[in-house]
């Protein structure tokens, strides 16, 4: 019976050890978990408080000019007519530029992402160069894209002049890397089993992508596009570079004719005025810009939810 006693001792010892492991009271550094949580919460609060501060400032500073005239009237440079000065041309200009941006950047970005994910051979030197460039392009300052736009879209290659679509193209260059990277991520998330099922029944690669891969990656693509547009709508520098004017008293005639301005440019020039009455307008403009951003994103989120599917 020595083995039985031996076994019993072993079982007891094992139980002791297990219990000691599970007993948290002896554990070192129990404060680490809550402390980590506190750091994370602080980070969130800093972000939210900053945003709230901006909105509150803009609301209080621009309150007296948050009226329909702001939306209806054209901007005026005359101090005497400041009370009725609005930003219709900037709102319409921003809207046009954004539409031009969407119809350009989504097809370009999604096509590039499909090529890189579904067709490219990642061992070849040119695909590697494209990959490295993509990662670096996302970090290029926006003013550099403004210079590019000035040289190739305004003058040079396309010679479009200072029109809405020049702005759209310049912003396209700016946010294209974001759209490509997020669309690739979305395409990569589609399970390979779906591709195999489609190919296995004799569908061509093209039809597999069109009918299975793309519909399944729409939510991810839309999310990436939201991020890209949210950045683009607030850009002033590259558009100033390609000649977005200010105090434009009329709306752009179309994508390829007539001078234009956009909200960030208008706000920038208002806030640069010496007359502090312009600063009230600038603050009101910030609210309008935030409102447009919110509407755009709400639409995109609605679109995303419509296409979200369970696996």
């Amino acid at each position: 019976m020595r083995t039985a006693a031996h076994n019993r001792n072993a079982v007891n010892a094992a139980r002791e050890i297990t219990l000691a492991q599970l007993d948290g009271s002896q554990r070192q550094g129990r404060w680490k978990g809550p402390a980590f949580e506190a750091v994370l919460l602080t980070a969130i609060f800093v972000a939210i408080l900053t945003l709230l501060a901006v909105i509150l400032w803009a609301l209080t500073a621009g309150w007296e000019r948050l009226d329909l005239n702001l939306l209806r009237n054209m901007p005026s440079g005359m101090a005497s007519r400041l009370g009725e000065s609005g930003m219709q041309s900037a709102i319409i200009g921003t809207f046009y530029v954004m539409v031009g941006l969407i119809v350009t950047v989504v097809p370009l970005g999604v096509s590039a992402a499909i090529y890189l994910e579904e067709f490219a051979d990642h061992d070849t030197w040119y695909v590697r160069i494209i990959e490295i460039n993509l990662r670096n392009l996302a970090a290029v300052p926006s003013i550099v894209f403004g210079i590019l736009g000035l040289a190739f879209f305004y003058r040079g290659g396309l010679s479009l002049g200072s029109v809405v679509y020049t702005g759209s193209l310049t912003l396209t260059m700016l946010v294209l890397p974001t759209v490509i990277v997020t669309a690739r991520e979305a395409i990569r998330a589609v399970p390979p089993s779906i591709r195999h099922a489609s190919m296995g029944m004799g569908a061509t690669k093209w039809r597999t992508i069109w009918h299975q891969v793309l519909p399944s990656s729409i939510p991810g693509i839309v999310t990436g596009t939201i991020l890209a547009l949210s950045r683009a709508i607030g850009e002033a520098a590259p558009l100033i570079m390609i000649g977005a004017a200010t105090f434009v008293g009329w709306n752009p005639d179309g994508p390829f004719e007539g001078s234009f301005t956009v909200l960030p440019v208008q706000i920038f020039f208002w806030s640069a005025q010496a007359n502090t009455d312009f600063h009230i307008l600038a603050a009101a403009g910030v609210i309008v810009l935030l409102g447009m951003l919110l509407m755009m994103n709400s639409f995109a989120i609605w679109l995303r939810n419509r296409f979200t599917r369970e696996w």
Binding site: P191, S193, I194, H196, S198, M199, G200, M201, T204, Q212
Partner: peptide, 28 residues
Amino acid sequence: IEVRRHIGMVFQKPNPFPKSIYDNVAYG
């Protein structure tokens, strides 16, 4: 592509398309 239309395949894990039952069958 033509070969796979004549020689069908069923995989290890059930992998229906994220579509309706009808559309899964009608897809091919």
